[in-house]
Design a protein around this nucleic acid. Sequence first.
DNA 1: TCAAAAAATGAAACCAGTTTAAGAAATCGT
DNA 2: ACGATTTCTTAAACTGGTTTCATTTTTTGA
Lengths: 189, 189
Amino acid sequence: MYTALYNHIRKYVAFTNADAAALEPYLYMKEVKRKEILLKPGQVCREHYFVKKGLVRMYLMDEKDTEKITTFAIENWWVTDNDSFITGQPTEYYMQAIEPSELIYIKANERDELFKAVPAYESYTRMIAERALVAYQRRVNFINMMSDEERYRFFAESFPGFLQRVPQYMLASYLGFTPQFMSKIRAKR
Amino acid sequence: MYTALYNHIRKYVAFTNADAAALEPYLYMKEVKRKEILLKPGQVCREHYFVKKGLVRMYLMDEKDTEKITTFAIENWWVTDNDSFITGQPTEYYMQAIEPSELIYIKANERDELFKAVPAYESYTRMIAERALVAYQRRVNFINMMSDEERYRFFAESFPGFLQRVPQYMLASYLGFTPQFMSKIRAKR
DNA sequence: TCAAAAAATGAAACCAGTTTAAGAAATCGT
DNA sequence: ACGATTTCTTAAACTGGTTTCATTTTTTGA
Protein backbone atom coordinates (compact mmCIF):
# COMPACT_ATOMS: atom_id res chain seq x y z
CA MET A 1 0.00 0.00 0.00
CA TYR A 2 2.41 2.69 1.18
CA THR A 3 5.68 0.90 0.48
CA ALA A 4 6.62 3.23 -2.40
CA LEU A 5 6.60 6.07 0.13
CA TYR A 6 8.45 4.09 2.80
CA ASN A 7 11.16 3.26 0.29
CA HIS A 8 11.46 6.90 -0.60
CA ILE A 9 11.73 7.95 3.04
CA ARG A 10 14.47 5.36 3.60
CA LYS A 11 16.60 7.07 0.96
CA TYR A 12 16.80 10.09 3.27
CA VAL A 13 16.52 8.98 6.90
CA ALA A 14 16.69 5.90 9.15
CA PHE A 15 13.12 4.66 9.24
CA THR A 16 12.15 1.52 11.15
CA ASN A 17 9.09 -0.67 10.80
CA ALA A 18 7.89 0.83 14.07
CA ASP A 19 8.17 4.28 12.48
CA ALA A 20 6.14 3.04 9.53
CA ALA A 21 3.47 1.72 11.86
CA ALA A 22 3.37 5.07 13.68
CA LEU A 23 3.16 6.98 10.41
CA GLU A 24 0.43 4.90 8.79
CA PRO A 25 -2.56 6.41 10.64
CA TYR A 26 -1.67 9.75 9.09
CA LEU A 27 -1.48 8.49 5.51
CA TYR A 28 -4.32 8.45 2.98
CA MET A 29 -4.72 7.19 -0.58
CA LYS A 30 -6.53 8.70 -3.53
CA GLU A 31 -6.94 7.35 -7.07
CA VAL A 32 -7.73 9.88 -9.76
CA LYS A 33 -8.70 9.60 -13.41
CA ARG A 34 -7.03 11.28 -16.36
CA LYS A 35 -7.88 15.01 -16.31
CA GLU A 36 -9.43 14.86 -12.86
CA ILE A 37 -9.10 18.15 -10.95
CA LEU A 38 -7.58 17.89 -7.47
CA LEU A 39 -7.62 21.57 -6.52
CA LYS A 40 -8.97 24.78 -7.94
CA PRO A 41 -8.66 28.51 -7.24
CA GLY A 42 -10.47 29.70 -4.13
CA GLN A 43 -10.10 26.40 -2.29
CA VAL A 44 -7.62 25.91 0.52
CA CYS A 45 -5.06 23.24 -0.27
CA ARG A 46 -5.14 20.97 2.77
CA GLU A 47 -3.32 17.97 1.33
CA HIS A 48 0.26 17.20 0.38
CA TYR A 49 0.46 14.54 -2.31
CA PHE A 50 3.11 11.94 -2.98
CA VAL A 51 2.79 10.56 -6.51
CA LYS A 52 2.94 6.78 -6.25
CA LYS A 53 1.93 6.31 -9.88
CA GLY A 54 1.03 8.74 -12.64
CA LEU A 55 1.58 12.38 -13.47
CA VAL A 56 0.10 15.54 -12.01
CA ARG A 57 0.43 19.20 -12.95
CA MET A 58 -0.24 22.56 -11.33
CA TYR A 59 -1.18 25.60 -13.33
CA LEU A 60 -2.55 29.13 -13.21
CA MET A 61 -4.94 30.86 -15.61
CA ASP A 62 -3.71 34.29 -16.66
CA GLU A 63 -5.89 37.29 -17.52
CA LYS A 64 -6.19 36.05 -21.11
CA ASP A 65 -7.46 32.63 -19.93
CA THR A 66 -4.25 30.91 -20.92
CA GLU A 67 -2.87 28.11 -18.78
CA LYS A 68 0.52 28.73 -17.20
CA ILE A 69 1.94 25.44 -15.96
CA THR A 70 4.23 25.87 -12.98
CA THR A 71 4.81 22.28 -11.82
CA PHE A 72 4.84 18.72 -13.05
CA ALA A 73 5.03 15.87 -10.54
CA ILE A 74 5.87 12.30 -11.52
CA GLU A 75 6.47 9.14 -9.51
CA ASN A 76 8.20 9.74 -6.17
CA TRP A 77 7.65 13.49 -6.17
CA TRP A 78 5.65 15.43 -3.65
CA VAL A 79 3.26 18.07 -4.91
CA THR A 80 1.08 20.70 -3.26
CA ASP A 81 0.42 24.41 -3.37
CA ASN A 82 2.98 25.17 -0.70
CA ASP A 83 1.65 28.66 -0.18
CA SER A 84 -1.92 27.60 0.52
CA PHE A 85 -0.91 24.41 2.35
CA ILE A 86 1.38 26.26 4.74
CA THR A 87 -0.34 29.61 5.18
CA GLY A 88 -3.92 28.30 4.94
CA GLN A 89 -4.84 30.97 2.40
CA PRO A 90 -6.98 30.11 -0.64
CA THR A 91 -5.03 28.90 -3.65
CA GLU A 92 -4.79 30.55 -7.06
CA TYR A 93 -3.81 27.27 -8.69
CA TYR A 94 -5.38 24.36 -10.43
CA MET A 95 -4.01 20.91 -9.77
CA GLN A 96 -4.92 18.22 -12.24
CA ALA A 97 -3.95 14.63 -13.03
CA ILE A 98 -2.56 14.35 -16.55
CA GLU A 99 -2.49 10.55 -16.38
CA PRO A 100 -4.61 8.28 -14.21
CA SER A 101 -2.73 8.47 -10.92
CA GLU A 102 -2.38 6.93 -7.49
CA LEU A 103 -1.60 9.43 -4.77
CA ILE A 104 -0.57 9.00 -1.16
CA TYR A 105 -1.17 12.10 0.93
CA ILE A 106 -1.06 13.66 4.35
CA LYS A 107 -3.36 16.34 5.77
CA ALA A 108 -2.27 19.83 6.76
CA ASN A 109 -4.15 19.81 10.05
CA GLU A 110 -2.52 16.57 11.19
CA ARG A 111 1.01 17.57 10.37
CA ASP A 112 2.17 18.86 13.75
CA GLU A 113 0.83 15.79 15.52
CA LEU A 114 2.49 13.60 12.90
CA PHE A 115 5.88 15.27 13.37
CA LYS A 116 5.60 14.72 17.12
CA ALA A 117 4.65 11.07 16.65
CA VAL A 118 7.38 10.32 14.08
CA PRO A 119 10.36 12.68 14.41
CA ALA A 120 12.20 10.92 11.57
CA TYR A 121 9.35 12.02 9.34
CA GLU A 122 10.02 15.65 10.21
CA SER A 123 13.68 15.24 9.23
CA TYR A 124 12.55 13.67 5.99
CA THR A 125 10.13 16.56 5.38
CA ARG A 126 12.91 19.06 5.96
CA MET A 127 15.10 17.27 3.43
CA ILE A 128 12.29 17.14 0.88
CA ALA A 129 11.70 20.86 1.34
CA GLU A 130 15.39 21.55 0.87
CA ARG A 131 15.46 19.40 -2.24
CA ALA A 132 12.45 21.29 -3.63
CA LEU A 133 14.33 24.50 -2.88
CA VAL A 134 17.30 23.26 -4.90
CA ALA A 135 14.93 22.39 -7.76
CA TYR A 136 13.42 25.89 -7.68
CA GLN A 137 16.86 27.48 -7.60
CA ARG A 138 18.00 25.43 -10.59
CA ARG A 139 14.90 26.52 -12.42
CA VAL A 140 15.57 30.21 -11.81
CA ASN A 141 19.13 29.58 -12.99
CA PHE A 142 17.77 27.86 -16.09
CA ILE A 143 15.48 30.79 -16.87
CA ASN A 144 18.26 33.32 -16.35
CA MET A 145 20.89 31.57 -18.41
CA MET A 146 19.04 30.30 -21.47
CA SER A 147 16.75 31.65 -24.15
CA ASP A 148 13.38 29.98 -24.69
CA GLU A 149 14.77 28.02 -27.59
CA GLU A 150 17.81 26.83 -25.66
CA ARG A 151 15.61 25.78 -22.76
CA TYR A 152 13.44 23.71 -25.02
CA ARG A 153 16.39 21.92 -26.61
CA PHE A 154 18.04 21.31 -23.26
CA PHE A 155 14.84 19.95 -21.79
CA ALA A 156 14.09 17.77 -24.81
CA GLU A 157 17.55 16.23 -24.65
CA SER A 158 17.70 15.86 -20.88
CA PHE A 159 14.27 14.29 -20.36
CA PRO A 160 13.28 12.53 -23.58
CA GLY A 161 11.02 10.08 -21.71
CA PHE A 162 9.14 12.90 -20.09
CA LEU A 163 8.44 14.51 -23.47
CA GLN A 164 6.45 11.45 -24.44
CA ARG A 165 4.24 11.70 -21.40
CA VAL A 166 3.04 15.30 -21.79
CA PRO A 167 1.48 17.04 -24.77
CA GLN A 168 3.80 19.57 -26.35
CA TYR A 169 1.59 22.51 -25.59
CA MET A 170 1.95 21.75 -21.88
CA LEU A 171 5.71 21.70 -22.13
CA ALA A 172 5.56 25.02 -24.00
CA SER A 173 3.46 26.48 -21.19
CA TYR A 174 5.86 25.15 -18.55
CA LEU A 175 8.86 26.57 -20.42
CA GLY A 176 7.11 29.91 -20.75
CA PHE A 177 6.27 30.29 -24.43
CA THR A 178 3.50 29.59 -26.93
CA PRO A 179 2.75 26.32 -28.77
CA GLN A 180 3.19 28.25 -32.03
CA PHE A 181 6.70 29.25 -31.10
CA MET A 182 7.42 25.65 -30.18
CA SER A 183 6.32 24.51 -33.63
CA LYS A 184 8.62 27.12 -35.12
CA ILE A 185 11.58 25.80 -33.13
CA ARG A 186 10.84 22.19 -33.93
CA ALA A 187 10.46 22.93 -37.63
CA LYS A 188 14.04 24.24 -37.69
CA ARG A 189 15.72 20.86 -37.29
CA MET B 1 25.48 38.71 20.03
CA TYR B 2 23.05 36.16 18.63
CA THR B 3 19.83 37.50 20.10
CA ALA B 4 18.49 38.68 16.73
CA LEU B 5 18.60 35.04 15.63
CA TYR B 6 17.13 33.71 18.87
CA ASN B 7 14.24 36.12 18.55
CA HIS B 8 13.67 34.96 15.01
CA ILE B 9 13.69 31.30 16.03
CA ARG B 10 11.16 32.03 18.78
CA LYS B 11 8.69 33.26 16.18
CA TYR B 12 8.56 29.71 14.82
CA VAL B 13 9.24 27.21 17.61
CA ALA B 14 9.48 26.90 21.39
CA PHE B 15 13.10 27.69 22.15
CA THR B 16 14.42 27.74 25.73
CA ASN B 17 17.54 29.36 27.11
CA ALA B 18 18.96 25.86 27.41
CA ASP B 19 18.34 25.38 23.66
CA ALA B 20 20.14 28.66 23.01
CA ALA B 21 23.10 27.50 25.08
CA ALA B 22 23.18 24.22 23.17
CA LEU B 23 22.98 26.02 19.85
CA GLU B 24 25.63 28.62 20.51
CA PRO B 25 28.70 26.41 19.89
CA TYR B 26 27.49 25.95 16.31
CA LEU B 27 27.02 29.65 15.57
CA TYR B 28 29.60 31.98 14.02
CA MET B 29 29.72 35.69 13.21
CA LYS B 30 31.14 37.51 10.24
CA GLU B 31 31.28 41.24 9.50
CA VAL B 32 31.66 42.26 5.89
CA LYS B 33 32.28 45.54 4.15
CA ARG B 34 30.24 47.09 1.36
CA LYS B 35 30.90 45.12 -1.87
CA GLU B 36 32.79 42.36 -0.10
CA ILE B 37 32.47 39.01 -1.87
CA LEU B 38 31.31 36.09 0.28
CA LEU B 39 31.24 33.38 -2.35
CA LYS B 40 32.28 32.98 -5.96
CA PRO B 41 31.84 30.42 -8.74
CA GLY B 42 33.88 27.27 -8.31
CA GLN B 43 33.86 27.39 -4.52
CA VAL B 44 31.71 25.11 -2.42
CA CYS B 45 29.22 27.05 -0.31
CA ARG B 46 29.72 25.65 3.18
CA GLU B 47 27.93 28.35 5.17
CA HIS B 48 24.33 29.36 5.67
CA TYR B 49 24.02 33.04 6.57
CA PHE B 50 21.43 34.81 8.68
CA VAL B 51 21.49 38.54 8.00
CA LYS B 52 21.57 40.29 11.36
CA LYS B 53 22.24 43.68 9.79
CA GLY B 54 22.75 44.81 6.24
CA LEU B 55 21.92 43.59 2.76
CA VAL B 56 23.35 40.77 0.67
CA ARG B 57 22.74 39.65 -2.89
CA MET B 58 23.40 36.54 -4.97
CA TYR B 59 23.97 36.71 -8.70
CA LEU B 60 25.16 34.84 -11.76
CA MET B 61 27.20 36.11 -14.69
CA ASP B 62 25.70 35.16 -18.04
CA GLU B 63 27.63 34.46 -21.25
CA LYS B 64 27.66 38.19 -22.04
CA ASP B 65 29.20 39.01 -18.66
CA THR B 66 26.03 40.58 -17.39
CA GLU B 67 25.01 40.14 -13.77
CA LYS B 68 21.75 38.30 -13.18
CA ILE B 69 20.64 38.86 -9.61
CA THR B 70 18.62 35.97 -8.20
CA THR B 71 18.35 36.82 -4.50
CA PHE B 72 18.38 39.73 -2.10
CA ALA B 73 18.59 39.09 1.62
CA ILE B 74 17.86 41.74 4.24
CA GLU B 75 17.64 41.64 8.03
CA ASN B 76 16.20 38.38 9.40
CA TRP B 77 16.54 36.47 6.16
CA TRP B 78 18.66 33.41 5.61
CA VAL B 79 20.78 33.23 2.49
CA THR B 80 22.96 30.58 0.90
CA ASP B 81 23.42 28.76 -2.38
CA ASN B 82 21.07 25.95 -1.41
CA ASP B 83 22.27 23.76 -4.24
CA SER B 84 25.94 23.93 -3.31
CA PHE B 85 25.29 23.97 0.44
CA ILE B 86 23.15 20.85 0.33
CA THR B 87 24.72 18.82 -2.47
CA GLY B 88 28.33 19.90 -1.81
CA GLN B 89 28.86 20.71 -5.49
CA PRO B 90 30.72 23.87 -6.53
CA THR B 91 28.56 26.95 -6.87
CA GLU B 92 27.89 28.98 -10.03
CA TYR B 93 26.94 32.03 -7.96
CA TYR B 94 28.49 35.13 -6.54
CA MET B 95 27.39 36.28 -3.14
CA GLN B 96 28.18 39.85 -2.21
CA ALA B 97 27.35 42.35 0.53
CA ILE B 98 25.61 45.41 -0.92
CA GLU B 99 25.78 47.27 2.41
CA PRO B 100 28.23 46.72 5.26
CA SER B 101 26.67 43.71 6.98
CA GLU B 102 26.74 41.57 10.09
CA LEU B 103 26.09 37.92 9.44
CA ILE B 104 25.44 35.01 11.75
CA TYR B 105 26.07 31.65 10.17
CA ILE B 106 26.20 27.90 10.62
CA LYS B 107 28.49 25.43 8.84
CA ALA B 108 27.32 22.69 6.48
CA ASN B 109 29.51 20.00 8.02
CA GLU B 110 28.17 20.64 11.52
CA ARG B 111 24.53 20.64 10.58
CA ASP B 112 23.65 17.01 11.34
CA GLU B 113 25.31 17.20 14.74
CA LEU B 114 23.52 20.49 15.40
CA PHE B 115 20.12 19.01 14.57
CA LYS B 116 20.79 16.13 16.94
CA ALA B 117 21.89 18.49 19.72
CA VAL B 118 18.96 20.90 19.28
CA PRO B 119 15.91 19.22 17.73
CA ALA B 120 13.90 22.46 17.94
CA TYR B 121 16.45 23.92 15.58
CA GLU B 122 15.67 21.28 12.99
CA SER B 123 11.95 22.11 13.20
CA TYR B 124 12.86 25.75 12.75
CA THR B 125 15.04 24.90 9.75
CA ARG B 126 12.19 22.94 8.20
CA MET B 127 9.88 25.91 8.62
CA ILE B 128 12.42 28.29 7.16
CA ALA B 129 12.86 26.01 4.16
CA GLU B 130 9.10 25.83 3.68
CA ARG B 131 8.85 29.59 3.92
CA ALA B 132 11.61 29.95 1.31
CA LEU B 133 9.64 27.54 -0.87
CA VAL B 134 6.57 29.74 -0.57
CA ALA B 135 8.69 32.75 -1.53
CA TYR B 136 10.00 30.95 -4.62
CA GLN B 137 6.52 29.87 -5.60
CA ARG B 138 5.20 33.41 -5.29
CA ARG B 139 8.03 34.58 -7.46
CA VAL B 140 7.24 32.09 -10.22
CA ASN B 141 3.62 33.22 -9.96
CA PHE B 142 4.75 36.83 -10.22
CA ILE B 143 6.81 36.09 -13.34
CA ASN B 144 3.96 34.18 -14.97
CA MET B 145 1.23 36.70 -14.30
CA MET B 146 2.87 40.06 -14.95
CA SER B 147 4.80 41.79 -17.70
CA ASP B 148 8.17 43.31 -16.85
CA GLU B 149 6.59 46.74 -16.54
CA GLU B 150 3.81 45.51 -14.24
CA ARG B 151 6.33 43.70 -12.09
CA TYR B 152 8.37 46.83 -11.68
CA ARG B 153 5.38 48.95 -10.69
CA PHE B 154 4.12 46.31 -8.30
CA PHE B 155 7.52 45.95 -6.68
CA ALA B 156 8.06 49.70 -6.43
CA GLU B 157 4.71 50.15 -4.70
CA SER B 158 4.97 47.12 -2.45
CA PHE B 159 8.51 47.70 -1.17
CA PRO B 160 9.27 51.43 -1.41
CA GLY B 161 11.83 51.22 1.40
CA PHE B 162 13.73 48.49 -0.35
CA LEU B 163 13.98 50.58 -3.53
CA GLN B 164 16.02 53.11 -1.62
CA ARG B 165 18.52 50.52 -0.47
CA VAL B 166 19.49 49.04 -3.84
CA PRO B 167 20.66 50.79 -6.99
CA GLN B 168 18.06 50.67 -9.73
CA TYR B 169 20.17 48.62 -12.07
CA MET B 170 20.23 45.83 -9.48
CA LEU B 171 16.48 45.85 -9.20
CA ALA B 172 16.26 45.75 -13.00
CA SER B 173 18.55 42.73 -13.00
CA TYR B 174 16.50 41.00 -10.29
CA LEU B 175 13.26 41.68 -12.17
CA GLY B 176 14.78 40.34 -15.37
CA PHE B 177 15.24 43.33 -17.64
CA THR B 178 17.80 45.99 -18.56
CA PRO B 179 18.49 49.28 -16.78
CA GLN B 180 17.66 51.06 -20.06
CA PHE B 181 14.21 49.54 -20.11
CA MET B 182 13.76 50.57 -16.50
CA SER B 183 14.56 54.17 -17.35
CA LYS B 184 12.03 53.98 -20.15
CA ILE B 185 9.32 52.80 -17.75
CA ARG B 186 10.16 55.40 -15.15
CA ALA B 187 10.14 58.21 -17.71
CA LYS B 188 6.53 57.39 -18.53
CA ARG B 189 5.07 58.71 -15.28
C1' DT C 1 -14.63 2.38 -36.03
C1' DC C 2 -15.71 6.74 -36.50
C1' DA C 3 -17.26 11.35 -35.09
C1' DA C 4 -15.75 14.69 -31.94
C1' DA C 5 -12.38 16.74 -29.41
C1' DA C 6 -7.65 17.74 -28.55
C1' DA C 7 -3.14 18.80 -30.27
C1' DA C 8 0.13 20.47 -33.66
C1' DT C 9 1.43 23.37 -37.60
C1' DG C 10 1.99 27.48 -40.64
C1' DA C 11 2.38 32.21 -41.96
C1' DA C 12 2.11 37.25 -41.54
C1' DA C 13 1.74 41.28 -38.82
C1' DC C 14 3.10 42.92 -34.60
C1' DC C 15 5.23 44.39 -30.03
C1' DA C 16 7.68 44.20 -25.50
C1' DG C 17 11.92 44.46 -24.29
C1' DT C 18 17.19 44.49 -26.01
C1' DT C 19 21.25 46.48 -27.90
C1' DT C 20 24.48 49.91 -28.78
C1' DA C 21 26.31 54.17 -27.97
C1' DA C 22 26.84 58.46 -25.66
C1' DG C 23 26.21 61.93 -22.31
C1' DA C 24 24.51 63.59 -17.64
C1' DA C 25 23.94 63.08 -12.79
C1' DA C 26 24.83 61.20 -8.40
C1' DT C 27 27.74 59.03 -4.97
C1' DC C 28 31.92 57.57 -2.69
C1' DG C 29 36.35 57.40 -0.49
C1' DT C 30 40.03 60.00 1.09
C1' DA D 1 35.64 69.15 -1.08
C1' DC D 2 36.78 67.03 -5.13
C1' DG D 3 38.26 63.68 -8.66
C1' DA D 4 37.10 59.06 -9.75
C1' DT D 5 33.82 55.90 -10.18
C1' DT D 6 29.29 54.33 -10.30
C1' DT D 7 24.62 54.95 -11.62
C1' DC D 8 20.95 56.79 -14.57
C1' DT D 9 18.97 58.50 -18.84
C1' DT D 10 17.87 59.09 -23.84
C1' DA D 11 17.24 57.59 -28.42
C1' DA D 12 17.23 54.74 -32.60
C1' DA D 13 17.67 50.35 -34.73
C1' DC D 14 16.67 45.75 -33.90
C1' DT D 15 14.99 40.86 -32.52
C1' DG D 16 12.96 36.90 -30.06
C1' DG D 17 8.88 35.59 -29.25
C1' DT D 18 3.50 36.70 -29.51
C1' DT D 19 -0.89 37.15 -31.70
C1' DT D 20 -4.35 36.06 -34.75
C1' DC D 21 -6.49 33.13 -37.73
C1' DA D 22 -6.82 29.11 -40.57
C1' DT D 23 -5.75 24.31 -41.57
C1' DT D 24 -4.12 19.64 -40.68
C1' DT D 25 -3.08 15.74 -37.80
C1' DT D 26 -3.69 12.85 -33.87
C1' DT D 27 -6.08 10.96 -30.06
C1' DT D 28 -10.00 9.55 -27.58
C1' DG D 29 -14.03 7.53 -25.86
C1' DA D 30 -18.61 5.39 -26.77
